[in-house]
Amino acid sequence: MSIAETTRPRRLPAFVAKREVERFALLLAWLVLFLTFGALLPDTFLTWRTVSSMLGSQAVLVVLALAILVPLTSGDFDLSAASTLVFAAMFLAVSDVTWGWGIGWSVAAALTIGALIGAVNAFFVLYFRIHSLIVTLGLGTFLNGMTLWISDSRTIAGVSMQLVELVVIKRLLGVPLAFYYGLAVAIVMWWALEYTIAGRKLLFVGRGREVARLNGVSVNRVRGASFVLSGLLAALAGVLYAGMTGSADPTSGLSLLLPAFAAAFLGATAIYPGRFNPIGTLVGVYFLITGITGLTMLGADAFVQSLFYGGALIVAVSLSQLVRRRQPQNFG
């Protein structure tokens, strides 16, 4: 009895310390990266202009990563998210510029379409019981065709300056408003997952559908809602994309899908290790852009950026696994 009393307090702090190190390792790595580039480029990197520029430029990726994070949390994949982003951006541009709907209606329509796309994904996944990878891959490809169709394969420029101003021109503390939209979505999502019943249900469903069902959680409703929310957020990312560039083109936004997944997986090694989480994802996105910006400022070739991007993801996830004593991965 007395032995147990003396050993317990010694083991607990070690465990807690290790867990805390794991939680904040990516944040620390980000800080180290920032300070390293700051030391190498004191006159240019360590300026508020550089920081605000990094923060302001990643909102689209942040929101897209948060979009795919919702179904990932409930154990589903949404491979149609980037296609939804591109379609929503294109629909907004065509309806605003070509059809003359006005920017307010165009944004509302784009967001509604995003939610509808999520509902279609949910219908096929849940009613026909097809794996989400297959359904979202199919619907994403279908949407790519729709985008080419409505745009006549062209880039549409001339999106209302009202939207451009609200996204990238207006600033708060020198940082374009786009950053705050991404930050707001991340904070709301973190709060919902941590402190609301719906959010906890989403986590339970992701951890074990059968257990959640036996506990009275309506698994299909939760999964369906996660697809709708994913579609809505992907469309919001599309609205930001159109506001960022003042235009919409039919293909280039598709290349954001893999970086979004990279950010989500990288984020799953931080704050709440082993679990997809919005704050971790936010840290992941800005960790990566800090590295890319610093390397570009140092004059690194294009391939070095890809090495950093891919390498950082693998190293971070591997280190996280070492800390977790190589337990099998069970994201969700």
């Binding site: 480029l41 240019t44 550089t50 520029s53 430029s57 970086p259 910006t293 570009t296 400022m297 294009a302």
Partner: peptide
């Protein structure tokens, strides 16, 4: 000179240009 492969235009031109403008 900033070299950006075609399939990375959407993800790298913006950040690359920003970095170049900030550095110079």
């Amino acid at each position: 000179y900033l070299n950006v492969p075609v399939n990375e235009w959407a993800t790298r031109i913006q950040s690359g240009t920003q970095s170049a403008l900030l550095a110079n």
